[in-house]
Design a protein around this nucleic acid. Structure first.
Length: 495
DNA sequence: TCTGGGGTCCTCACCCTC
DNA sequence: TCTGGAGGGTGAGGACCC
């Protein structure tokens, strides 16, 4: 184990909700719930004000609304969160080349590798400076944990929340961990937690006392050995700056269960296209196609098929997904469909060209090929002739021109009425930038304010008001917005 | 109005080959 | 020639994380 506590774990506090509060001044100090707003939506993040009502991540949105009826419920705006995250990650990379992002709002940093800290004192100083820099750059608070290992640094930042910093001194790990719940340890979720509880183990100290053999017997070799080491405070996993993606997938939960087989087939095709889009964006091709189906009773099954070689051809993925669907019984209804690709390979034009030529030769030369003939067929049609596929040549993006934002899952698209999702950014020709507070019965209510401005006032428009348009999020800091009136008519003070 | 979306890793069963 | 085991590939599902 490393002696110096120079592994830093950064955790932004209630990240999505905090970003929303920063960009919408009227929500500061109020309960904010970010998540899916559909009938089957769940909470992604709740502000600390909302958490006081019992709202937490992964809770059904309907339940969150019941617990916190006055909370502002907003859809996530990932493009904005990504932009803020980029700013924070850039600050981390100034500290060390070894930065391991875990998500948009979390990362490990090896300070020693960056030469920024080598003992407790310098690590503390670096951590404090980082927190101040993040506030200056984004206006948001973050919690920092410092320890000699990743696991302990994460425990420390969890203990430091919100808006705090904690360093775990070398030598104090076991005593610190002993009284904590086993659920504190990474890898111990509801299932393992319950398993251990039934064996009379609820805190980390008891885990250490149980011994490695007993834990291996209970939860399996890999997990058991890992748990025992963590209970002793041992963790020598290095901070890894770059991780290769292992799979790419997309999935949709439908507001209402799907029963119509044709509709289900169409949705699978649509998901396959979106998946390939993502696959290509990431610069990969993949070899194994996975279909995921969650049925009406929430039972989930997956079916997969491994191709002869990696592909990023939409036709090939569509065909494979369709074949997999044929083997699935969907009577009773389907609430979720997903298509994924694993066994990723680096995308190279040559590989694909060679594969396409080989498939073409195989299908042209001999009809009776081996089993994955569908793949060969599809690869053949994806050639220069471009016969079957409706999507145009690469680059045009195809029909799935999904915007960056989050749209409600699968609707049949009737006569289009403009829809304004709560929380989304808009700009009015007269009143300037604002955000949608709510909409319904042909009306949309917009609050006109921006990051750094005082809380703005609310106006209501017809949903088809031509002067109202969707807009991009404004940066949280850096715009001289304070005191500046909105574009067009000035916003009056208090009414 | 129960239960999202995008991942990773592990385990187990089965089949095939050596 | 038959049999048994090891080991890899594949497919499916579960647990977990943010």
């Amino acid at each position: 184990m490393r002696a110096a506590p120079t592994i830093l774990h950064l955790d932004m506090d209630a990240f999505y909700a905090s970003v929303e509060q920063a960009s919408k001044p009227s929500l500061r100090g109020k309960a904010v719930i970010v998540g899916g707003l559909g009938p089957r939506g769940v909470v992604a993040t709740a502000s600390y004000e909302a958490r006081r009502f019992g709202v937490h991540s992964a809770m059904p949105m309907a339940q969150a609304r019941r617990l916190c009826p006055n909370g502002a419920c907003l859809i996530p705006r990932f493009s904005l969160y990504r932009a803020v995250s980029d700013v924070v990650m850039a600050l981390l990379r100034e500290l060390s080349p070894l930065v391991e992002p875990l998500s948009l709002d979390e990362a490990f940093v090896d300070l020693e590798a960056g030469g920024t800290a080598f003992d407790a004192e310098s690590a503390l100083e670096t951590g404090q400076r980082l927190r101040a820099d993040i506030v200056a750059a984004t206006g948001l608070s973050a919690s920092v944990g410092l320890a000699g290992s990743k696991m302990l640094a994460k425990v420390a930042s969890e203990e430091a929340k919100p808006d705090g910093l904690l360093l775990i001194e070398p030598g104090t790990e076991r005593a610190l961990l002993a009284p904590m719940s086993v659920r504190t340890l990474p890898g111990v979720g509801p299932a393992t937690g319950e398993h251990l509880r039934r064996a009379g183990i609820t805190i980390v100290g008891e885990l250490a006392e149980a011994g490695e053999d007993e834990l291996v017997r209970m939860v399996g070799r890999s997990h058991g050995v890992g748990l025992y080491r963590m209970a002793l405070g041992l963790d020598d996993r290095p901070v890894v700056a770059e991780r290769d993606a292992k799979s790419v997938s997309v999935e949709d939960t439908f507001d209402v269960d799907l029963h119509d087989r044709v509709r289900i087939r169409n949705e699978v095709q649509r998901l396959a296209d979106r998946c390939v889009h993502r696959l290509r964006d990431s610069g990969h091709s993949g070899r194994t196609i996975v279909l995921k189906v969650r049925r009406y009773d929430f039972s989930t099954l997956t079916r997969s098929e491994t191709l002869r070689g990696p592909t990023d051809d939409p036709a090939v993925v569509r065909e494979a997904a369709a074949r997999l669907l044929e083997a699935v019984d969907t009577t009773g209804g389907v609430r979720l469909l997903g298509v994924g690709v694993t066994g990723l390979a680096d995308y190279t034009q040559e590989d694909l060209f060679a594969q396409s030529m080989a498939a073409e030769a195989a299908s042209a030369g001999d009809a009776g090929a081996a089993e994955p003939d569908g793949a060969a067929e599809a690869a053949g049609t994806g050639g220069p002739g471009d016969s079957g596929a409706p999507a145009g040549p690469a680059g045009s993006g195809g029909p799935a021109e999904a915007p960056e934002g989050v749209e409600p899952a699968g609707e049949p698209e009737p006569a289009r009425e403009r829809r304004w999702a709560a929380g989304s950014d808009v700009r009015h020709a007269v009143y300037g930038p604002g955000w949608v507070q709510g909409s319904g019965v042909g009306r949309v209510t917009v609050r006109f304010e921006r990051p750094g401005s005082p809380p703005g006032r609310v106006r209501t428009f017809r949903v088809d008001d031509p002067e109202l348009e969707p807009s991009d999020p404004l940066p949280l800091v850096g715009e001289p917005a304070v005191g500046e009136p909105a574009v067009g008519e000035p916003v009056p003070e208090e009414g």
